[in-house]
Design a protein around this nucleic acid. Structure first.
Length: 534
RNA sequence: GGGCCCGUAGUCUAGCCAGGAUAGGACGGCUGGCUUCGGACCAGCGGACCCGGGUUCAAAUCCCGGCGGGCCCUCCA
C-alpha cells in the first residue's frame, strides 16, 4: 500500500522531530496534515525531511504534500504487478456471514433483495482481505404455515405446475387455503394436525416438506446466480427445533429463565424479558437463534459472525447477544447485527393496497426494462447489455447509500445517463477498456504531471485504505462512493489528457491500465456486473 | 409509557465512529464547450448542516432537551 508506506515514513520522521500528533488524511490541503495549534508549524515544516513529501505550514496546520512524480511510478508499478490483488491483505480470520434468508415457499421480496446484495458485498470484501468466509443462508422453513401448505397442496396442488414454477404454485394453493378456510373452518384444525405430524416426523409430510424446500432453493438460486451470490450452507430453523429445547434447560439452570403460567420467560440484565418457550412447549425464534449461534461456534470457532438482517430486528439481536454473554459465552462479543433499512418503490403504495407483494425478480426485470428504454432513446439498444445495466443499477442503488438509511428506487434517476448512477460507472469502464484495446503497455516514466493525472494517481493510491475502512465498519457504500469518485477523476482525465498518440502515451497507458484494474476490483467487491460495450 | 435509527439546497447523497481550514458530490434549472481515445462526456453559475441549550480556543460531528419521519417492546419470524 503506497499511501500507507508514505504515511509510515511521515510518521517516523515526525516522531524523530518529537511531534506526537495524529496524522490525518486530507483531500483539499495536500495528502496528510497535522494540527499545530500549540506547535511551531514553521519549524516543523523546515526541519521535516522525507523523500518525495513536502511539508508546508499553513494556518494552524502543517500539511504534507506527496510528490506524485516521485511516488507515482512506484504506485503504478505496484498496481500493475499486483493486478487484481492490489489492495488485498492477509487478515486470516474466520468469519461467518448469515444473509439472504428467504422463506421457503414464498417469493423473495425487495427486502431480501437488499439483504442479499448487501450480504454478498460484505462476503466479497471479507474474502478480498484474506479472511475465510462461511456463507450461510438461514431459511425460514418452519412454522404452522407448513401444515397449511401441505394440506392445501394435497387438496388442490398441481404436480406439473409445481415442477415448472414451484413458488408460484405453492403461493397459489396457500392463498386458496385462506379463501377456503372462510367457508370451512375445520381446515384450520386439520392443518395444525398435519404440522404436529410433520414435527413428529411422519414420513409422507416430511418428504413433501423436503420437496418444497428443495424446489424453493432451486428457484432462489436463479436470483443468486444473477447476483453472483453463493452459500456454503443452506440450513434452516427446522434443524434447531430440538437443540432449542436444550438451550431452554441450560438457561433455566444458569438462572436466566423462569417459568410463568406454563411458559418460560427469559430474564437477562439490560434487555426486556421475553418468552422463550410457549405454553404448548414449542420454542420461539429467539430460542432457535440461541441454539443456532452456539452450534455454529462449536462447528466453526469463528472470529466474527455477522447477521445481515433488517433493522426492525435490532432488539432481537440485542437480546440474542446479551443472553449469550450472560450464559458465559466469551465469543458473544464477536457477533454483530448488520442492520439495514427498507427499500421504497415508486409503485409501492399502490401495490400494498392491492395486497400484492413485489418480488425481487420483478424489481430486477423492471430495471432491465427501463434500461432498455433508455438505450433505445439514444439508439443503442442491446438486450444483453440492457440486462447487465439494469441489474447493475439495482445493485448500485442499494449499495451506494448507508445501510442504515432508506433506499428509494426511482427508475429515471437510477438509470440516468449522468450523475452518480450505475450507467455512468459502466460507461467510464468501457472508455478505459477501449483505450487499452488499442494500446500496448511499455516502459514509462512519471513526470510533468497535469492536475488531472495527479488526482487520478492519488485516488488510485487510496483504494486499499477504502476497502479496509469498508470492512472495519461493514459499509460497502464506502467502496461505492470511492468508485464514483474514481470514475469522476478518470473522466476528467480522459477529457483533458489524450492518451493514444500523445507524447506521454506510455505513462498514460499505464495510468489507464491501473484505473481499469481498480475499477474491476470495485465492481467485484460490490458484486456488480461489468460490460465491455454499451 | 420505554427503547433504537434517521433528519445536510427543490430532490437525493458524502462527511458524524476518532471535533479543526471555504461542508464534498449528484439530479433538476441556467450558461458554455466539445462530437471523441465510442459524448451515456466535460467546464461554469446559483442554492443546505431540523430547532434550542451545553462542552470546547473550535461543533454537521460530542452531551442534554425538543420537533419531524420510521422501527421495536412476551407466547410471529
Amino acid at each position: 500500500m503506497v499511501l500507507g508506506e508514505i504515511r509510515e515514513k511521515v510518521k517516523k520522521e515526525l516522531k524523530k522531530l518529537g511531534v506526537e500528533k495524529e496524522l490525518k488524511r486530507s483531500e483539499k490541503h495536500g495528502d496528510f496534515f497535522i494540527e499545530a495549534f500549540d506547535l511551531d508549524g514553521e519549524e516543523i515544516a523546515e526541519t521535516f525531511k522525507v523523500e518525495g513529501v513536502k511539508a508546508k505550514a499553513e494556518g494552524n496546520y502543517v500539511n504534507f504534500y506527496v510528490d506524485w512524480e516521485y511516488w507515482g511510478k512506484r504506485l503504478l508499478d505496484k498496481v500493475l504487478k499486483e493486478g487484481e490483488n492490489y489492495g488485498r491483505e492477509k487478515m486470516g480470520k474466520k468469519v461467518v456471514i448469515e444473509y439472504s434468508s428467504p422463506n421457503v415457499a414464498k417469493p423473495m421480496h425487495v427486502g431480501h433483495l437488499r439483504n442479499t446484495i448487501l450480504g454478498n458485498s460484505l462476503c466479497r470484501i471479507y474474502e478480498f482481505m484474506g479472511n475465510k468466509v462461511i456463507k450461510i443462508n438461514w431459511l425460514g422453513d418452519t412454522g404452522t404455515q407448513f401444515g397449511k401448505l401441505i394440506l392445501a397442496y394435497k387438496l388442490w396442488g398441481n404436480e406439473e405446475e409445481l415442477e415448472k414454477n414451484p413458488i408460484k404454485e405453492l403461493l397459489r394453493v396457500y392463498v386458496k387455503f385462506h379463501e377456503e378456510v372462510e367457508k370451512d373452518p375445520k381446515l384450520e384444525e386439520k392443518a395444525r394436525e398435519i404440522y404436529a405430524a410433520l414435527e413428529g416426523g411422519k414420513e409422507e409430510f416430511v418428504e413433501l416438506w423436503k420437496r418444497f424446500r428443495e424446489l424453493s432453493i432451486r428457484e432462489f438460486k436463479r436470483i443468486y446466480d444473477l447476483l453472483g451470490a453463493e452459500f456454503d450452507e443452506y440450513t434452516g430453523e427446522s434443524y434447531y427445533i430440538e437443540k432449542a429445547k436444550k438451550v431452554v434447560e441450560e438457561l433455566k439452570k444458569k438462572g436466566l429463565a423462569y417459568e410463568k403460567e406454563g411458559s418460560v420467560i427469559l430474564h437477562v440484565e439490560g434487555v426486556p424479558d421475553t418468552v422463550i418457550m410457549k405454553k404448548d412447549g414449542t420454542t420461539l425464534y429467539l430460542t432457535r437463534d440461541l441454539a443456532t449461534a452456539i452450534d455454529r461456534y462449536e462447528k466453526y470457532k469463528f472470529d466474527l459472525m455477522l447477521y445481515v438482517v433488517g433493522s426492525e430486528q435490532k432488539l432481537h439481536f440485542r437480546q440474542l447477544f446479551k443472553t449469550l454473554e450472560a450464559m458465559g459465552y466469551e465469543w458473544a462479543k464477536n457477533c454483530k447485527h448488520i442492520s439495514y433499512g427498507l427499500i421504497r418503490l415508486p409503485e409501492g403504495k399502490i401495490s400494498t393496497r392491492k395486497g400484492r407483494v413485489i418480488t425481487a425478480e420483478e424489481v430486477i426485470n423492471r430495471s432491465v426494462e427501463e434500461a432498455g428504454k433508455v438505450m433505445r432513446g439514444i439508439g443503442k439498444f442491446n438486450q444483453e447489455v440492457a440486462e447487465k445495466v439494469g441489474l447493475a443499477a439495482v445493485i448500485y442503488s442499494i449499495l451506494k447509500v448507508d445501510p442504515e438509511k432508506f433506499v428509494e428506487f426511482k427508475w429515471e434517476e437510477m438509470l440516468r445517463l449522468k450523475g452518480n448512477t450505475a450507467p455512468y460507472l459502466l460507461y467510464s469502464y468501457v472508455r478505459a477498456k477501449h483505450i487499452l484495446d488499442k494500446a500496448e503497455l511499455k516502459e514509462f516514466e512519471v513526470k510533468g504531471l497535469k492536475e488531472q493525472e495527479r488526482r487520478l494517481l492519488k485516488k488510485l493510491s487510496l483504494f486499499p485504505l477504502v476497502v479496509k475502512e469498508a470492512l472495519e465498519r461493514n459499509k460497502p457504500n464506502f467502496i461505492a462512493n470511492y468508485l464514483y469518485g474514481l470514475c469522476d477523476d478518470f473522466n476528467r482525465f480522459y477529457e483533458e489528457c489524450q492518451v493514444l498518440g500523445s507524447e506521454k502515451e506510455e505513462f498514460r497507458v499505464a495510468l489507464v491500465s491501473c484505473t481499469k484494474i481498480v475499477l474491476e476490483n470495485c465492481f467485484k467487491l460490490l458484486g456488480m456486473p461489468l460490460v465491455e460495450k454499451m
